[in-house]
Design a protein around this nucleic acid. Structure first.
Lengths: 213, 213
DNA sequence: CACCAAATACCCCAAACGGGGTATTTTTTT
DNA sequence: AAAAAAATACCCCGTTTGGGGTATTTGGTG
């Protein structure tokens, strides 16, 4: 027998292993009941209709669809349902989009589950919760906590520039941002290409994504 | 009291929510014991030394480090430990790298946990397990299973070309691949930019990644 | 058949990138 | 203080991309 006051949760994530795992730990928490799991964007609205959850945990990357768009649709159709984005992306752009979409929170997958439960309760209490780590335009601070930069012989400045290239800035724009000459950016870029054996922007962006810059 | 024959597992993943969740469902499985969790590349080797696992579940994206490299180090230092890559990346390149590194398997996070348990048992029995879905260079077949392409008014050809751009090919190379003129690629590209409100390769690659192309 | 979306192909020109150099200054390490 | 590493900046030139057009052909669908 379970409390009628328990919060009903719908998990929307295309990674079944995460979804099932999250369900397992949520169900050990008193007050939370996972009333359903959806693995793609398609079935979300009908699942909400059927299962009537209080809160939807929503991934952004839904194998082809954008979770934030899905969140918008949820709000339009079910204004009382809370929507909490649960994602791996520490990108201010996505957090802003989530906020502008009127969703109730943005939470990172590398967080402590305990904190997630706290965020969920806060959202259910009517608060909005946005993870700071995704707001502060990723720390230009120190990409060297890990050893990957050293391993690849990338310097601090190079990592900094890779990030800006990934974000779609041109040499000119990067130069303006860093208050140095565009020609210097070009040099850094050539060095990066040489170090990583790349020849174009696309591969560099892929590299940046893969290494979580 | 637990069976002395239980397989001891170390989970290496920077997403604590996934790690804890996976631990929760693994511990419901008879024969599996999670002997430890590591959240970054740094502590892996010493954790293995201390905890003596039979199998390491290893993510590729370790917040700055490459899991496959970590896997190589594990094999060098602990040749009897099995290493199973558990990742979201359906990329043949990464699967090949895993195979060449001599690791024991490559498994996708959007799989059924039951299948994961099967793969783990197979690996422990000395087999190697590589998920087919990451081998078959993602299906150029049908990007329209989801609605995203329609939603964004992208045509089949456009999606096809976006993929090739993302993979770092130039217009010339794409044209050769598709047996059409480079100028046609250019036109498609312009149309894509217009439809998606993009202006450069970097943003296009980000788009492709985010939508799982 | 008429219509329309999709795919094909070209014109123009400007902007940006890619790769080969060299060189100076600043910072860090030895 | 000397050496090494990092960051800065420029030269060359060719390739590639970006964006404004226009136009033909192809394959459905009403």
């Amino acid at each position: 027998m379970q409390s009628v006051r328990a919060c009903h949760i719908l998990i929307v994530d295309d990674h079944q292993i995460l979804s099932d795992g999250l369900k397992a730990i949520l169900e050990k928490q008193p007050g939370f009941v996972v009333c359903g799991q959806v693995f793609d964007a398609g079935g979300v609205l009908s699942a909400i209709q059927t299962l009537n959850p209080n809160l939807v945990l929503l991934d952004i990357n839904l194998g082809g669809s954008n979770g934030i768009d899905v969140g918008r649709k949820i709000l339009m159709n079910f204004p009382t349902v809370k929507v909490l984005i649960l994602t791996m992306y520490k990108q201010p752009k996505l957090l802003d989009e989530t906020r502008r979409a009127g969703l109730h929170g943005y939470f990172l997958k590398d967080s402590n589950p305990i904190d997630l439960f706290g965020a969920m309760r806060a959202v259910l209490d009517g608060e909005r919760v946005f993870d700071e780590r995704a707001q502060t335009a990723e720390p230009p601070a120190d990409p060297f906590g890990d050893d990957f930069a050293q391993r690849l012989n990338l310097t601090f400045r190079e990592v900094e520039i890779i990030r800006l290239i990934r974000d779609g800035l041109t040499n000119e724009q990067i130069a303006a941002r860093l208050h140095i000459s565009p020609l210097t950016i070009k040099t850094h870029r050539k060095n990066v290409h040489s170090k990583l054996s790349l020849t174009n922007v696309a591969d560099l962006v892929q590299f940046a994504n893969r290494h979580g810059l």
